[in-house]
């Protein structure tokens, strides 16, 4: 383990640890006896981004925007139609095996119960990953115990228990320990705290902060809760209908929001001030159907400031004021040009 960290430090600090290039996934909608594809859901449509070493990259968006699919595409739980995944500058499929990638990029899911095998004790669940990677059983078990105490669960009390006997927060700690067991560099947290009660959520967030510092981890933090993402993330990606509409440092995303969709999302957050309750709907309607996405800018039917061009021409990600802040909107792009 100490060996790992030392090799990690020799790398250049600002080279991306993980690169996602033009990744695309359409889910065919099957019908009929032999399931001929008649149409497809465009879950993720050609998105690219980098994850830097030791950062927390937040991904936000409403349901159906493709954020969870993106997570699964990264570790190839779903195979992409197109696109490349590069870990540590090595391309998956050529100079990087799937096994290597998966050992370095682990996932923690939203449903703490469904993500634990109900027939395995907690120590067996945590030891499973190391064992399949050739760690001797007894050593794997010790590792499981050590990880349990690391995630704040007394191994003597919890190691021999089954998932149904412990609370949701404790289960999510076990899931984190399981992810850590193969010594990954990146952990993808897919709505990992969303199902927890607020007080428990805060405990788990603290744990994630501590672990990150202690183990030099990189997080991809996926959530629909903008408060949590604001608290956790260094950079944020905003997704809408399978595309990235805005990306940038968390401060500029929240303070100098460039895309009208991101602005509406932020305005939809409860005010937390009884004297100034939200008075109008920031974003009308439901997210449209990802099967037949709107032409041009996919947000244009719901956009309060859309211009004719938005209907016909697809906006590309443009550089904004702050370094590293990009947004895909014709209007902000125009403003930039007038500067």
């Amino acid at each position: 383990m100490s060996e790992d960290t030392s090799t990690r430090r020799t790398h250049m600090a600002d080279a991306p640890l993980l690169e996602v290039r033009e990744i695309t996934k359409f889910f065919p909608i099957k019908s009929g006896l032999f399931g001929r594809a008649t149409n497809s859901v465009r879950a993720v449509d050609g998105i690219s981004f980098n994850v830097l070493r030791r950062e927390t990259l937040g991904i936000v968006g409403e349901s159906g925007c493709g954020k969870s699919t993106t997570a699964r595409l990264i570790v190839d739980l779903i195979s992409p139609d197109k696109g490349d995944i590069l870990f540590d500058a090595r391309r998956l499929g050529t100079d990087l095996t799937l096994n290597e990638l998966r050992r370095n990029v682990q996932m923690v899911f939203q449903d703490s119960y469904a993500s634990l095998n109900p027939r395995l004790t907690i120590e067996d669940t945590i030891a499973f990953g190391p064992i399949i990677h050739g760690v001797p059983r007894e050593y794997a078990r010790r590792l499981a115990w050590e990880l349990l105490s690391k995630v704040g669960l007394d191994p003597k009390r919890f190691a021999g228990r089954y998932p149904h006997e412990i609370s949701g927060g404790q289960r999510q700690r076990v899931n984190i320990a399981r992810a850590l067991a193969v010594k990954p560099q990146i952990i993808i947290l897919d709505e990992s705290v969303s199902a927890l009660d607020k007080s428990v959520e805060a405990q788990v967030l603290n744990l994630l902060l501590d672990l990150k510092k202690e183990l030099d981890l990189t997080y991809i933090f996926i959530s629909h809760d903008l408060n949590v993402v604001k608290f956790m993330a260094d950079r944020v990606i905003v997704m809408y209908l399978g595309e990235i509409v805005e990306v940038g440092p968390v401060e500029s995303i929240y303070a100098e929001t460039a895309h009208p969709y991101s602005r509406s999302l932020l305005a939809s957050m409860p005010s937390m001030d009884p004297d100034h309750r939200s008075e109008h709907v920031a974003l009308a309607g439901d997210p449209p159907n990802p099967i037949i996405p709107p032409s041009g800018c996919r947000f244009h039917p719901r956009c309060p400031i859309a211009i004719p061009k938005c209907k016909t021409e697809k906006p590309l990600l443009h550089i904004q004021k702050t370094r590293g802040h990009l947004a895909a909107c014709h209007l902000t792009a125009q403003q930039q040009e007038t500067f």
């Binding site: 805060a202 405990q203 949590v228 608290f231 009884p274």
Partner: peptide, 30 residues
């Protein structure tokens, strides 16, 4: 919201993350 009295209510409010400082450990109910 403005003047919670019970320690549990206080804890719940703190866990809401509203106005929490980024990346700084939260006050939690253990």
């Amino acid at each position: 919201v403005k003047d919670p009295k019970h320690p549990y209510t206080k804890g719940l409010l703190a866990a809401n993350l509203h106005g929490a400082e980024r990346g700084k450990r939260l006050e939690t109910i253990p």
